[in-house]
């Protein structure tokens, strides 16, 4: 490959990667703090993960193994496109298996399988500012972060309880990092919040349109905000996964027909397949081999 029409490894030029890495290093040094960075135009629209893609491009090496999920699934358009993008521009190995991946780029989920040391989880973030809901001025929100003035976050939760009788925020549920910065965990379900706490993996958050990067280094204290009399709880599901029978995992609702038929299945497709491969079966599940035939 030579000539003008070739890409640098992983699409971004080296100077840009260095700029992004510097932002990442700063973000790791100050857990939960939003570091501004010079977000580049990427060959995809905003909202398709341009922040996550830039972070991934900046940390990706030739020996990395990449997994990309969208709402927990490896096979949705966004996940497939991004995976294909990095296969093309970096020629790295890709996988759908959580435990085999060194870098997992995600939109809206944390895999069910516990992440381990050496793995990096890259989140695609639409709106990084947790205070934005009540305070539209960027100058003011920065000052509030600087001075740890987080009363507003509880105003938001108060409103939730006043309207619904309980904290009805189920995704992008705000957390406090190391007792200092309040952070938006991106629109992951609050079900995943506890997984962020003391995770062995490095967690990086990239917001392309908003030009912010923030991070949770391994073993970081992450606490979901709440009230003494309305403590933080995660969603629970009445039934196990209809396909693999897993309990205590996050389920998606799947509509089966136009007569009201539905089932609840693991949102993490890899986890579900893995369980079915091990022989676990839900009440509507079919063994994996038969399904393939």
């Amino acid at each position: 490959m030579s000539g003008l029409a070739t890409y640098n490894f992983a699409y971004l030029d080296e100077q840009t990667k260095r700029m992004i890495r510097r932002a990442i290093l700063k973000a790791i040094a100050i857990p939960g703090y939003q570091v501004p960075f010079a977000s580049r135009e990427m060959p995809m629209p905003y909202g398709w993960g341009t922040g996550g893609v830039q972070v991934t491009a900046a940390i990706l090496g030739p020996t990395d193994v990449l997994k990309v999920i969208d709402q927990g699934a490896d096979d949705t358009t966004n996940a497939v496109s991004i995976r294909a993008f990095f296969q093309k521009v970096a020629n790295v190995e890709v996988t759908t298996r959580t435990k085999d991946a060194t870098i997992i780029q995600t939109r809206h989920r944390i895999p069910e399988e516990k992440l381990t040391e050496g793995q990096v989880l890259v989140y695609q973030v639409p709106i990084p500012e947790p205070l934005r809901f009540l305070e539209p001025r960027e100058t003011e929100t920065r000052k509030m972060h600087a001075l740890s003035e987080y009363g507003l976050m509880h105003v938001k939760l108060y409103e939730d309880i006043a309207r619904n009788g309980h904290i009805a925020t189920t995704y992008a549920y705000p957390v406090k990092v190391e007792g200092r910065y309040v952070m938006d965990p991106s629109p992951t379900p609050k079900f995943d919040n506890p997984k962020m706490h003391m995770s062995e993996a490095l967690q990086l958050f990239g917001a392309g349109r908003e030009k912010r990067i923030y991070a949770l280094p391994p073993f970081t204290d992450v606490v979901s905000l709440d009230f003494d009399d309305h403590p933080f709880t995660v969603q629970s599901f009445e039934k196990p996964c209809a396909l693999c029978g897993a309990e205590g995992v996050y389920l998606d609702e799947v509509v089966l027909d136009d007569r009201g038929g539905r089932m609840f299945v693991c949102s993490d497709t890899d986890y579900c397949e893995d369980r079915r491969a091990q022989g676990f079966l839900g009440d509507q599940g079919v063994p994996l081999k038969e399904a393939a035939e």
Partner: peptide, 14 residues
């Protein structure tokens, strides 16, 4: 009305 209380650390909704 409650915002100032929350701002100085009150954490009991009731």
């Amino acid at each position: 009305v409650g915002e100032r209380l929350m701002a100085i650390g009150h954490r009991h909704y009731g």
